[in-house]
Design a protein around this nucleic acid. Sequence first.
DNA 1: AAACAACCTTCCCA
DNA 2: ATGGGAAGGTTGT
Length: 382
Amino acid sequence: MYKYQSVKKLQNHLLMIKFNKILFQPGELVIDNVLHCGQAFRWVFHEDLRQYSASLNVGGKYRIVVVKQGKDNCIEYGTLDTIEEDVLRSFVESYFRLEVPLLDLFAKDWALRDSRLKSKAPLGVRILAQDPWETLVSFICSSNNNISRITKMCHALSSNYGDKLGVYNGVEHCSFPSSAQLLERASESELRTLGFGYRAKYIMGTAQKMQELAKGMLSDTPLLENWKKTLNYEQIRENFMGFPGVGPKVADCVCLSGMRLDHVVPVDVHIARIAQRDYRFVSRKRDLFQLQDMYKDMPITRRKINYELDSIRIMFKELWGDYAGWIQGIVFAQEIGKTLGATQEGTISKRKLEIEVKVEEKVGTEVVAMEIKRRITESVQS
DNA sequence: AAACAACCTTCCCA
DNA sequence: ATGGGAAGGTTGT
């Protein structure tokens, strides 16, 4: 009897969350695809509610945010927190970069620049505006690693070393730890016992380096945001590669998904394969010399860069333009397919799901949607 | 500058 | 069932 009541109470509590909507064109944003394409690792999927929840840095403070895909071309968002409605709304808009017109850019710019894209659909895949410090640490975890374990590691960081924020639908949410909190609460050996492997040293080293850079002043996200005000992309990347465990790929991921540098194309093994297989990329001596000259005053970049991969990045930047990183996100998602997510029990299961196709309205016929789906399945298998 | 082994752990697949 | 290989790389030689 009591049990039943408490369950009832819990459900009522859930219902008390007020969801608000943000409307957009059909296909502008497909949450399932965006949150599973390997740029965000701490969203929890609630299968029963068809909702996602996470703790996110909203204006300098981590808060629980809940989102779900609405029925008619919209996202619904809510929170347990006491945030003013317009603050949360503008946060969600900027987190999903809704000011960027994905479909327009795709049709009127990207597909014209690159005829290979004409046969593809953006599938609502967007680049997020994530917290820079969390993005930096998350992608340090990503090196030579699979998404399943990266997800576990990011959750382990917040639940072990972050601040408790509250429970949503049975899932406890914690903030992502600051560099100071990591230094205070974590250690390399403990991280190793938590399964971080050799990345344990990188994470503690990066937290340490961040504290040194801050010199007691601004640190973490505010410090990294300041880089954007005074430095160009190459300088920002040079700075990021000053952290241990951060090479060109990780630095570029943080630039794109944490610093909103939309033209940056992180070149991993898959993008390199696509460049050679689909775009007939061959490195040219002249380009490599040019790059060496460009980086002559950047010692860290010179030490860590792979010139061949960097010239792939530049090829795509020149082909795809100011939003090259967004196109990379779309191409990558189609190459890899959707992989996994966290369920409400906290268990993370590998499940090779097809990318959901929700572009029927836009494209028109179901035949086209089927064709896209078939192509994705093909690319996942290969 | 470029190539290559080593690196932690987990998951997948033969 | 059991073992090699890969996973959105980085580091040191």
